[in-house]
């Protein structure tokens, strides 16, 4: 493959991943309101376009048109940096996710993954841990007590749940033997999905994913009934939009990570027996991955409109006294089973 072709192919892939993340995040807001309406026996948005399908566009335009307010006593640079960091970190995780196998076009092999670094999972962990800066900087720069409380809650919550998440991933890495997301996805052909080998690890991981994305029941950083709006109280216009949008992109990305790590990624059982051509298989793989992702996004919404939020001390107790011991136990059991089976 020549260099110019390589650059064009990677650029197209990057732009596609970026656009798909944005569009899915956009329509997640619509889906969230429709799911909420369904759960509460209402109709939901139905004015803009057929079935209210243009509602996200109308919301986006409204966000852009709103007056932009920057508090005088706040630090202007950090105030703008906050939502930028939040948006940036939620957009760059998509680079390591394997969206499918690879397409063979005109003698070239186009892998459907932007980059396969040999420490893919750790990259995801690093980006999640950087993501908290967006919330902390924004919350502090607002110079508002509610914002500061929201930022402090967000940081302590994310640090606490990162530990359990990391320990759950260690058990997963022990079973797969690689840190590369491509390797993990490729190893789960047929029925060998990691959920079969790591059910407890998956349970811990999904709880931590809810906490890391600040979704209900862990949305204490922005709990509107106690903190007005938490870290984004002082934000208006598209800066507020960026914070809300980053949350939906995070939801999409963490659904993709969960599907890739535990639910086989682009694999589907018995599909290999149909005898389809490799290119059709690759495209079908992308479809399967997105079906799994949409299921998880729906699951996020399902939980949000079903379960009330925790109290903050309950959240800390769950994180430190239940999830971390459980994940260490899971790690020990996994190590023991590997030792017994391999000797």
């Amino acid at each position: 493959m020549t260099l110019s072709l390589f650059i064009i192919y990677k650029a197209v892939l990057v732009i596609l991943v970026f656009l798909i993340s944005l569009v899915i995040a956009m329509y997640s807001t619509y889906a969230e309101r429709k799911v909420a309406a369904f759960m509460q026996d209402r109709i939901g948005p139905n004015r803009a376009g057929p079935f209210g399908l243009l509602q996200p566009v109308a919301d986006g335009v409204k966000m852009f048109m709103k007056e932009e307010i920057i508090p005088q006593v706040s630090n202007k640079f950090l105030f703008i940096l906050g939502p930028s960091v939040a948006m940036f970190t939620s957009c760059i995780t998509g680079a390591v996710i394997p969206w499918g196998t690879s397409l063979h076009i005109a003698g070239h092999d186009f892998a459907l993954q932007v980059t396969d670094i040999n420490i893919g999972i750790l990259y995801v962990m690093a980006v999640t841990s950087i993501g908290v800066y967006g919330i902390m900087i924004g919350g502090w720069a607002s110079n508002n007590k509610y914002s500061l409380l929201g930022a402090l809650r967000a940081s302590s919550q994310m640090i606490s749940y990162e530990v359990a998440m990391g320990l759950a991933i260690i058990a997963l890495v022990m079973t797969t033997g690689t840190l590369s997301l491509k390797g993990i996805a490729a190893a789960q052909t047929g029925w060998h999905w990691n959920i079969v080998y790591q059910p407890l690890g998956f349970l811990i991981f999904i709880i931590c994913a809810f906490a890391e994305t600040n979704r209900t029941p862990f949305d204490l950083p922005e709990s509107d009934s106690e903190l007005i709006g938490g870290y984004h109280t002082e934000y208006s216009s598209m800066k507020l939009g960026f914070y809300l949008f980053a949350e939906y992109i995070n939801m999409f990305i963490s659904s993709a990570i969960m599907s890739t790590l535990y639910f086989g990624g682009y694999n589907m059982p018995f599909i290999g027996r149909l005898g389809l051509s490799p290119n059709t298989m690759a495209i079908l793989g992308v479809v399967f991955l997105f079906a799994k992702i949409f299921f998880f996004i729906f699951f996020f919404m399902w939980v949000r409109w079903t379960i009330p939020r925790f109290r903050f001390d309950q959240l800390m107790n769950l994180g430190w006294k239940i999830l971390i011991p459980l994940s260490i136990f899971n790690m020990a059991i996994t190590g023991f089973i590997i030792l017994v089976l391999h000797k």
Partner: peptide, 16 residues
């Protein structure tokens, strides 16, 4: 990546 996870992602967040 460990430098970022441990120092930038955890310790500095605690400092902050």
């Amino acid at each position: 990546i460990v430098n970022i996870i441990v120092y930038a992602g955890a310790i500095m967040v605690l400092f902050l």
